[in-house]
Amino acid sequence: MTRYLRHLFAAVVLAAWAAFAAHGAPPEGDPPPADILAALTEETVQIRSNFAGAEITLYGAVRGFEEGDDIAIAVRGPARDVRVMQKVRTLGIWINRAPIRFESVPGYYAVAATAPLSEFASFSALRRNSLGTGHVYLSAPETESLETRFGVSDVRVSTLGAEIVDYREALVRIKNRDGLYYEASDGVELIEGGLFSAEVRLPPRTPVGIYQADVYLFRDGEPIASRRVALRVEKAGIERLIYEMAHNSPLAYGLVAVILAVVSGWGAAEIFRRR
């Protein structure tokens, strides 16, 4: 019995430690001023043939919630490398030029909060946690160099100067147009006593993969607690079968596509000929 309890205790401590370790250890000695519990109404979103986007709810409770505290959540989709190109008019037509590669760009990025972010969070806190569409961490390593500026060594400097800002803004703007990046300053609803809920909209174009939803509790401009929950977006049913076949056995898929076309084209012609 005691051994069972000890195991259970160890498991709980381990889980709590793992949760905190993921966000940096809390100040030593002090008990954490607040704690967050969070969950999603669906932990797996399935893309089937009738998929036209999805809406899920992230809900939870804050222990030690005080008047004046604010909650922000950030949902980040699977990261991929993307290139952003600029359209330049050449001989009268618009041509994509000057590609810049951004590494590990989140394929989906949504932020929701109880109030506009800048009203309750300091600029540096937003930047550090990459909270808000203006603070998404977008790194283009090929255009960066490390320099010493004002006596500080290893300062990351863009070799493009101010132009990199245009590229970053364009990336966020295009993703926002497709519904993949957004910021909802009133997206988190506070119910009472630290209970909260937020709607997360996934557009039809939402990428497949593992998503992370982070919940932050802000007090006096700084996050004092956070919690991460995972969300999986996957193709299911026939959509999954087709997608996996196309990528895992492309030769067989190509053959099937050709045979399907030959049979249906020939079959349809026969049907119309008989009539």
Binding site: V84, M85, R101, A170, I174
Partner: peptide, 10 residues
């Protein structure tokens, strides 16, 4: 164009 930039997925 309305948008002077374009994203190319890698």
């Amino acid at each position: 164009p309305n948008e002077f930039y374009e994203i190319i997925e890698a």
